[in-house]
Computed example of a mutant assay.
Amino acid sequence: MKKKTLISILIFVLIAAMGTFSLSYATSVSDKQDELDSINQQKDDVSSDMNALTSSIKEQQAEIDKLQGTMDKKQAEIDEAERDIEETKRNIEERQDGLDNRLRTMYKNGSVGFLDVLLGSNSISEFISNLEMIQRIYKNDQNTLTTLEEQHQELEEKQTALKNEKSELSQQKAVAEEKQSALQSDKKALQAKLDELNAEADKVSSEIAGLQDHDKVYTGGKFIWPTTSSTITSPFGFRIHPVTGVYTGHTGVDIGVGMGSPVYAAASGRVIIAGPYGGYGNAVVIDHGSGISTLYGHNSSVSVSVGQNVKQGQVIASSGSTGISTGPHLHFEVRVNGSYVDPMQYFN
């Protein structure tokens, strides 16, 4: 009787312990999933801000490019004005030198003068002819002096205009540099926040992976290519990010494909994520067993739901450009126990 009672107590304790473990395990997974969901929501918010900033950057860059075109045109006008000023200076110097030389010849040598010319006339007709010549010379001198005065005035106006244009150009450059600096500052701040959230998400993902049951073994062999295009626009590894311009690790491969093209499951498995997923936009994640999962990002729409079992080659989404993206493409990732690996090793 005592033996049966002891066995009953042991069984009760064992059942209670297993129940407590299962409850604790489920609660732990649930808590981690809630934490991941919270982080992903923050990633969504940051991604939205990043996309808004990206649009703003494109608009501001177009404005800066337009401003740069205006500045280049203004610089060309300044260069032309400087050439005109130098030419005006040369014209003034040439006219001034010609007038000075002739006046020195006529008035300083003492051998020839207007009065001498008139008095030296031998007839009335020669006197009239000499008088007309003197009048033409006098008129030419007056015209030369007037032209010199006009050119001096023109020179002063050009120099004033040149000074104003240089000042305006300097102000335009300052405005363009200020706008560029502000945009770069905001972009770096958002990139830092996104990197921080990505690091947190990776940490929590690893913790969830550690709590999951990994008894399921992957037996599917090599993957099939996940879309209709074979063009890789950005490989796995470090690269310059196309939006932020920051040198950072690329967690998968980008495959250039048109909007709305079919996205295929690279291998059979169970869908664990389907829908908006931070910077990945509309994404699908499939668990294939043995800790292996694949991610398909930036889709225009998804065709599967969480918990659904899918077959290799089944259409799971349509390609797009959602999330942090510069154009239609498929971002494809492979993770093993939560860690990123080069996807290309899984294909023939």
Rank of each mutant, 00 (worst) to 15 (best):
K139F: 11
G258W: 11
G297C: 02
I232N: 00
S129F: 06
L53M: 09
D37N: 15
R102A: 09
V341R: 08
Q314T: 06
D141E: 14
R83G: 09
D215T: 04
D84L: 15
K73V: 07
E35V: 05
L14S: 00
K216Y: 02
M71H: 11
T70F: 12
N198C: 06
K163Y: 08
A52V: 05
N140I: 13
Q159L: 05
L190T: 01
L194H: 10
N164V: 15
N109G: 12
K193S: 14
S167D: 15
E200H: 06
I11Q: 04
A52F: 00
Q171A: 07
F223H: 10
L169N: 15
E196S: 09
G258S: 05
Q172T: 05
D65Q: 14
V263H: 03
G281W: 00
G69Q: 13
G221A: 00
N40V: 15
E149Q: 12
V284N: 08
S24V: 13
E59V: 10
G19R: 03
K216Q: 02
I7R: 13
L162D: 11
S185Y: 09
K3N: 00
N337A: 09
T326G: 01
G245K: 10
P328Y: 02
T144C: 08
E94H: 04
I255C: 02
R104K: 14
S230N: 06
I137Q: 04
G297A: 15
K173I: 11
G338K: 11
N299G: 03
V284T: 07
A174P: 04
D97I: 06
K193E: 00
T70M: 08
S303P: 04
I128V: 10
H288G: 02
E150V: 08
V271F: 01
V253D: 00
D49Y: 07
G98K: 10
A317V: 08
Y296K: 15
V285Q: 01
Q184L: 13
H214Q: 12
N299I: 03
D287A: 02
T105M: 03
T227P: 03
P328V: 03
T54E: 14
S205E: 11
I292Q: 02
T251H: 13
H298R: 05
E333A: 08
